[in-house]
């Protein structure tokens, strides 16, 4: 049994320690807001936060989470940065197909957490690992800037 803190709630799961956190979240716990994209940490769709820091859950063995608290897209709106980002996302209608957007929002709110006023370069650095096949990048950038001002 592995103990996890997910979105503020203590859970225990009976899974192999090798299982990627993403599978635990989606298939065992039922939190399907986090998406499977590439499975090799190259697209960012599976991004969740551990103690507020963005990680790729598709390649993170669940046993390596330890005592760090997990935040997923389902609960990021309850954090100050997550709330600002989600509001700006809706306001500017960033989303097109939406598949990558959970990951985009998790990375963007982690950025805002550590850097309340990110420059274009800061945004490039933080968001380059999150790919969007619809090409919503200009709106993502604008929404992060708007959230920073909120």
């Amino acid at each position: 049994m592995i103990a996890l803190n997910i979105n503020g709630e203590d859970r225990t799961v009976d899974v192999p320690e090798d299982m990627p956190l993403l599978w635990v979240l989606r298939d065992v716990i039922g939190l399907t807001g986090t998406k499977f994209g590439c499975g090799i940490a190259q697209c960012g769709a599976c991004t969740v936060q551990l103690d507020g820091r963005p990680v790729r859950s598709c390649v993170l063995p669940v046993a390596s989470v330890g005592t760090r608290s997990i935040t997923t897209i389902e609960a990021v709106g309850a954090t100050p940065a997550g709330k600002k980002i989600q509001d700006a996302w809706l306001d500017l209608e960033v989303i097109q197909c939406g598949y990558c957007q959970s990951g985009q929002i998790m990375s963007a709110s982690a950025l805002l957490n550590r850097n309340p006023d990110p420059s274009d370069r800061d945004i490039d650095t933080a968001m380059s690992g999150n790919i969007c096949r619809c090409g919503t990048y200009p709106r993502i950038r604008a929404a992060i800037k708007q959230a920073a001002k909120a």
Binding site: A41, P54, V55, T125, S128
Partner: peptide, 18 residues
């Protein structure tokens, strides 16, 4: 590096993902 590597390796040599 920014797009393909930084999300796991980070920039200060300490590693992010692991």
């Amino acid at each position: 590096f920014q797009g393909a590597c930084a999300s796991c390796h980070g920039w200060n040599g300490e590693g992010i993902q692991t």
